[in-house]
Amino acid sequence: MVKIGNISLNDFPLLLAPMEDVSDPPFRAVCKQNGADLMYTEFISSEGLIRDAAKSVQKLDIFEYERPIGIQLFGSDVETMHSCAEIATRAQPDLIDINYGCPVKNVACRGAGAALLQDIPKMVRMTEAVVKATHLPVTVKTRLGWDETTKNILEVAERLQDVGIQALTVHGRTRVQMYKGAADWTLIARIKENPRVTIPIFGNGDIDSPQKALDYKNRYGVDGIMVGRASIGYPWIFNEIKHYLATGTFLPSPTLAERVEVCRQHLEFSVRWKGEITGIFEMRRHYTNYFRGLDHFKPYRMRLVQSMSFDELNTILNEISEVFGEVESLSV
C-alpha cells in the first residue's frame, strides 16, 4: 500500500495528471469511473485565487466521488502561495499539490511552474510556506530540471522532502524540452534508489500503453505512475493498465457503444457543471479523441463541433452509434 500522509492508495496507484483545460470535473468523472486512483484539479493560479477570479475559484470545485483528490496550485510569490494554500484548504481536498513543472511561456516566464527549477532556494521556501499553511498533505509535481545542464531533480527531491512534502511526481523531461523527445526516467529511478528519500515517487511522461506501464514499473522502481495525454478521450487506459499489471493479459478495447456512452456522460456533466453554452463549447476539444480511428468520421466530427444544442449533440451521438456500430458488427 502506498501512503501519502493519511491517504492510503493501492500498491501501485495510477494518477491522473493535472492538465489545463482538460482535467476539469467532467473529465475527472469519466477517468475515476475507469480506474484512476488519485486525481488533481487543473492547476490554479495563486494570483487568480487571491483576486477571487471566477475561473480560478471555479477550479476549486471538487465532488465526493472524486476522492482522493488534490488541488494543484502554482505561483511565483512565496507569501501569495501561502495564502492561496489556506484558501484551497478550505475547499476540503485530500491534499495540496504544487506545480513546479508547467513549461508553457505564460507560466514559466512569470516565474512560476518550471521556472522555479532555476531557483531551488526559492522553491524550497515556497514549498515550506505551503506546508505550514495547511494541515493537509502537500505534494509536488516537477521536471528533471530547466535544461540539460541543470538536471537538479536529485537535490530537489531531498530538499523538498526535508521541508515536509509527502510525495513527489517527476515528469521525465526538462522545461526546455517541453513535450518533445522521449521522457527520460533514469533520474527518477535514481531518486528511488536514494536511501534518504522515503516519500512515494511517481513517474510521469510517455505512458501510453499497459505494456509500457509494466516495463517502466519494473525498470525504474517507481511507486506509481501518472498518466496524462494518453487519457484524453481514452479514460479506459487506467483499468487497462491495472488489468495488464495483474494478469499480463489485455482487456478488450472499448466498443463503439462504450465510446459513445462515455462521451455522452462527459458531455452531460460538462453541461451540468458549466452551463449549456460553455459546457458544449469546451467539450469540442474531446470528440476527435473519443472517436479516433473511425474511418470517414470527419463529417460527424464537424457536426459535433459546430452544434450548440445539447439535444442535437445527443442525436448526432445516436447516429454515430447506429452508423459506425453497424460497420463494427460487420467487421466482427
Rank of each mutant, 00 (worst) to 15 (best):
T150Y: 13
K151P: 00
K151N: 03
N152E: 10
N152A: 07
L154D: 06
E155T: 15
E155C: 10
V156Y: 00
V156I: 03
V156P: 00
A157E: 01
A157F: 03
A157Y: 03
A157C: 06
E158D: 14
E158C: 14
R159C: 00
R159Y: 01
R159A: 04
R159E: 02
L160I: 04
L160N: 03
L160T: 00
Q161R: 05
Q161Y: 10
D162W: 10
V163R: 11
V163S: 08
V163C: 13
G164Y: 06
I165C: 02
I165N: 01
Q166K: 06
L168F: 12
T169G: 02
V170L: 08
V170Y: 01
V170C: 04
V170A: 07
G172S: 02
R173V: 08
R173N: 10
R173L: 06
T174L: 04
T174Q: 05
R175Q: 13
R175I: 07
V176D: 07
Q177L: 08
M178N: 09
Y179T: 13
Y179R: 15
K180Q: 15
K180Y: 05
K180C: 12
K180R: 13
G181H: 10
A182W: 12
A183Q: 10
A183Y: 06
D184T: 07
D184S: 08
W185S: 01
W185K: 04
T186R: 10
L187R: 01
L187A: 01
L187K: 02
I188Q: 03
I188K: 01
A189C: 08
A189Q: 14
R190S: 07
I191A: 02
K192G: 07
K192R: 14
K192W: 05
N194D: 14
R196E: 10
V197L: 12
T198W: 10
T198G: 09
